[in-house]
């Protein structure tokens, strides 16, 4: 499945608030660890290597 780069989040403001809230009260190190775990969890959910490669490329280009 090609990487979705058009809007796909059901409720973007809510998601964004959840993301920031998850990091609340964490030290920089703890936040980095959380982000690492989050990336791994989401990557597994996506599963397809090709989609993940496109995501890595998209992130690098930004």
């Amino acid at each position: 499945m090609p990487l979705i780069t058009e809007p796909n989040l059901y409720s973007p403001d809510d998601f964004y608030a959840d993301l920031i809230a998850a990091h609340e009260g964490l030290s920089d190190e703890e936040s980095e660890a959380l982000n690492s775990r989050l990336i791994l969890i989401l990557s597994n959910h996506i599963g397809e290597r090709e989609t993940l490669k496109q995501a890595l490329e998209a992130a690098k280009k930004s």
Binding site: E32, A33, S36, R37, I39, L40, I41
Partner: peptide
Amino acid sequence: KNFRDAVLNLAERYTFARPL
């Protein structure tokens, strides 16, 4: 090292991380 530790951390609870 962050990713390595994240894998080890997740592997205890989630089987998906074990192959990593």
